[in-house]
């Protein structure tokens, strides 16, 4: 197991370096360079100033030196400097990761729990009302743009029936660190988490329903039934454990994609996480920050993949070596 994990880790490092090289290549292939953008923001500069800036950025050096420096900096946790925010990108990201994790964990966790329950129940009665409801719900969840669902929920739950705040994470009048502050954040969390959760819910209810239907048709479930075990025992002990495996796999994969998934929802609700940061850096044409977020997200994806792998081996002892 340790050997397998080590191999995965080596693989991971190569993948991450590839992401960085791609980042680097894209900046250099794309029209315009950081100095031009900066000069544009400063409102023009003399030729000497531009040459000085190029030297400062290391842009006058050969490509292999530049890429070497870039990789070395990232290895030390330095993702560059954002001139717009006047802060290192790494600290920008670390400031914003908390709200994103809070939002995505809430949404994903509730969606998995509710989705699995819905899926398991609807799989047992395939023609019941609940079962059709799950099918319709997941179809709708797959077909509507997530940001549009968010806006519709705002119109419904903040405008028509004003019970939830429209945007942001806190109200300014509540002091930080109090019990009310936690409640306030939770109050603001409901809508974005609901929006993101509905999309995940569509996915997990469908996945667990399909998985459960498949498992219920296997020989070991038939055997368990034939030897007269009570229905509950068959469903929860024999079937559910196996049906839940694909859910774990996808939960891991999706948790890795959190930042990407949260961009649209965070933008709709002005939730102060990495997604809004990514959106803002598009508006400001802040390439360094956007690329930093891209790399950081890729890092999250691979870390989550390794963790999922470990969890998976725990649940399913048949998987010994990859």
């Amino acid at each position: 197991m340790i050997k397998g994990t080590l191999g995965k880790t080596a693989n991971t490092v190569i993948l991450l370096i590839a992401v960085l090289v791609l980042n680097f290549a894209m900046i250099h292939v794309a029209p315009g360079d950081p100095v031009e953008a900066l000069v544009g923001e400063m409102g023009g500069a003399t030729t000497e100033q531009i040459a000085e800036l190029r030297a400062q950025f290391g842009l006058d050096q050969p490509l292999y030196v530049q890429i070497g420096k870039y990789l070395w900096n990232v290895a030390q946790g330095d993702l560059g400097y954002s001139y717009y925010y006047d802060q290192p990108v790494t600290s920008l990201i670390l400031d914003r990761i908390g709200p994103t994790l809070l939002l995505v964990t809430t949404a994903l966790f509730s969606a998995i729990v509710i989705g699995t329950v819905l899926g398991v129940f609807s799989a047992q009665r395939r023609n019941s009302l609940l079962s059709h409801l799950v099918t319709v719900l997941s179809l709708a969840g797959f077909s509507a743009p997530v940001f549009w669902i968010g806006i519709m929920l705002i119109l419904l739950l903040s405008v028509a029936i004003p019970i939830l705040p429209i945007s942001g994470m806190t109200s300014s009048e509540v002091p930080e660190g109090t019990f009310w502050y936690i409640l306030d954040v939770a109050h603001h969390l409901v809508l974005p988490a609901l929006t993101l959760g509905l999309i995940y819910l569509a996915f997990y209810s469908r996945l667990s329903r399909a998985s459960m239907i498949e498992v219920l048709q296997t020989d070991y479930v038939r055997t368990a039934r034939a030897k007269g075990l009570p229905r509950r025992m068959v469903i929860y002990k024999h079937a559910l454990r196996n049906a839940v495996l694909p859910v774990v796999t996808f939960a891991g994969l999706q948790f890795g994609q959190v930042i990407s998934g949260a961009v649209l929802v965070e933008t709709v609700f002005a939730w102060p996480g990495l997604g809004t940061l990514a959106f803002d850096s598009i508006l400001r044409r802040d390439t360094t920050t956007l690329l930093g977020i891209l790399f950081f997200s890729a890092l999250m994806v691979v870390v989550m993949n390794i963790l999922t792998d470990i969890v998976y081996r725990r649940i399913d002892p048949r998987i010994k070596t990859a």
């Binding site: 993948l15 992401v19 791609l22 980042n23 894209m26 900046i27 794309a30 029209p31 994609q257 930042i259 990407s260 998934g261 961009v263 649209l264 990514a278 598009i282 044409r285 390439t287 956007l290 690329l291 977020i293 891209l294 997200s297 890729a298 994806v301 691979v302 993949n305």
Partner: peptide, 16 residues
Amino acid sequence: VLPNLLFAMVVVMLFG
């Protein structure tokens, strides 16, 4: 592994 929406955002922003 590339976060798909973010990567597409980067491509579209850099190349127009």
